[in-house]
């Protein structure tokens, strides 16, 4: 019984989509320029700025981001699975408070987390270490992995686990052979979302990262506060394409709207 959108609605929709895509398309366009400054319309097409990335210090920053995001997403997921099991499967005193605490980083502005961690990490002598940076990111991404783990666990039919139980499986076997395979798509979706969140994080990382551990967003931020040129546009274009690939993977795993539903809610 789908009622159609009228012409005005479709015109609005076109404008909205244009508004959403315009800056992304523009960044892609200008990165192919032959000039050494940003110009529109693009007069000639070249890959010179993409080649220029190779020799720039964006590359070590990219690897830093890759390491930190991989480690943070993995640690967050590893912590989330048992925590989600506890809150999804047991009624115990303090359960609601615990869940609220685990989701609380969503409510704390990243700038606040940044200053707090800068102070704390320098107090305990972990400033400018990967260790401190990674665990700072774990705090930021764990609400996402936890939400996804909780959602998939509560969506699981308990009877399936009970069936395995009655068929003679022990708790360990039930988890390994039945529960884990069934929640794996949700966990994978959560890991990817956490990875992207960590990879893109700037506001907190600006405080926590040292020159040696500087991530790509921090490097880009420091760069654009000086000048905006085709080189940084080329880096951005590369990032857009990598994100599109990851996005398609996530949509396959879990459905993008369901996945992102956990992103905004506070």
């Amino acid at each position: 019984m789908m009622t159609r959108n009228g012409p005005w609605a479709l015109a609005f929709h076109a404008l909205f989509v244009g508004f959403i895509l315009a800056p992304l398309i523009v960044v892609c366009l200008v990165s192919f320029t032959t000039e050494s400054y940003l110009s529109l319309p693009v007069t000639g097409v070249s890959l010179r700025w993409f080649r220029a990335i190779a020799g720039s210090d964006f590359i070590p920053a990219f690897y830093n981001s890759l390491y930190v995001a991989t480690a943070a997403a993995t640690i967050a997921l590893a912590l989330s699975i048992p925590a989600a099991l506890a809150t999804a499967r047991w009624r115990f005193p303090g359960r609601d408070a615990l869940t609220a605490f685990f989701l609380s980083p969503l409510m704390v502005p990243h700038i606040v987390l940044g200053v707090a961690l800068l102070k704390f990490l320098s107090d305990i002598g972990l400033s400018s270490t990967y260790f401190g940076l990674i665990f700072a990111h774990v705090i930021i991404v764990m609400p996402f992995t936890l939400r996804l783990a909780l959602a998939t666990l509560t969506g699981l039919d308990r009877a399936v686990e009970w069936a395995a139980w009655s068929l003679g499986a022990s708790h360990g076997t039930i988890f390994r052979r039945v529960t884990l395979p069934l929640i794996l798509p949700g966990l994978a979706g959560g890991w990817l979302l956490a990875f992207i969140q960590s990879f893109d994080e700037l506001t907190m990382t600006v405080f926590v990262a040292a020159p040696s551990t500087m991530t790509l967003p921090v490097r880009m931020f420091n760069y654009v506060t000086d000048n905006i040129d085709p080189l940084v546009a080329a880096v951005s274009t590369a990032l857009i394409f990598v994100t599109i690939l990851l996005m398609i993977a996530m949509d396959r795993f879990y459905g993008l709207d369901r996945l992102l539903a956990g992103k905004g809610a506070r």
Partner: peptide, 20 residues
Amino acid sequence: VPPNRRNIGVVFQSYALFPH
């Protein structure tokens, strides 16, 4: 005796087959 040692066969309303 835990369920996995009772040797009882159970058929559930949702069937609870292992989908994977």
